[in-house]
Amino acid sequence: MSFNLFAAEEEALAKARALETRLGALAPDCLPEFRDLIAAFELSTREQQRLVRVSDRLQGQLNDAIHELDRQRSEAEAALDHLREAQEAMVQSEKLASLGALVAGVAHEINTPVGIAVSCASHLADATQAMRRRADGGTLGKAEFARYLATAVDTTDLILGNCERASQLIAGFKQVAVDRASAVRRTVNLAAYIQDTLVSLQPKFRPSGHAVAVYCPADLELDSYPGVLSQILSNLVMNALTHAFVDGQPGGMAITVDCPDADTVRMCFADNGRGMSEEHSARVFEPFFTTRRGRGGSGLGLHIVHNLVAGVLMGSITVCSAPDLGTSFTLQFPRRTPDRDLPVEALTM
């Protein structure tokens, strides 16, 4: 037996038709009106069936729409995941690239004192050879020996000085590189650390005649993440070199540090370059915002700076700029970074 949703209605109609027959015999004058009633009931039943189908169709459409929505939502979520992964990868490669630039910078920087030491040593060796020949031949004069001594003192001074310089550079670089890679927290002298970081960047700005002036209290000690500071400074300098200065014209940058109160450090990084419009300065910290897409700009440098200042140093950064009036970034952060539960590695991502 097949299921019939409208069995009751059909049963009622069957009864009505049976009644119609009896009514035809008993009260024939009532018959037309009764038939109208049956027709109305039949129509009503058909309409009811139709409405059930309309309603089922609507429910079906609703289900389709919900499934479609679900599908689109999963698609959008997958796309968002991919985007996050890509963004993460870009941030990582940006970090690696800046570490690479740091290595290249330091190598270039160490080259100078080592080169001087090598040529001094070679000069001293030549002079010593000549002295030995004279001494062996018994023709060494007093005046000549005095000249040799003067040369030896000068060159050994130079060798010593330049080797010390190279050793300092290596020590500074080692510290910066270790800090960068490991995000270790420690106490650091800010003025010295700024210098160490700038040394690694020298080759980037010296050939074009750019200069960085540093005004920082010599005794200011931070208890913070120096590697993060180094990365911030390096990104700010690179940003200025890329955007601020008209090609071929030497520009100036200044890092000014003060303490508005005992527990707060304010660091201002300013350049006297071409500045930027309000529209651009409002967006500089946005990820992937760049005016140099396809020409080496990733749009991540300042975004990373912003994240590091806000996330790791627990401070703030603002930008102030106007066309032809240069740009300045002002960072404010606690001298002693507050303790937190989160691993710093998670934040520097």
């Binding site: 129509l43 409405l51 309309v54 309603s55 609507l58």
Partner: peptide
């Protein structure tokens, strides 16, 4: 597109 009430209204118009 029409909902159930509108369907009933249409049927009434058709009648």
């Amino acid at each position: 597109y029409f909902n159930s009430s509108s369907a009933k209204a249409l049927m009434n118009i058709f009648q």
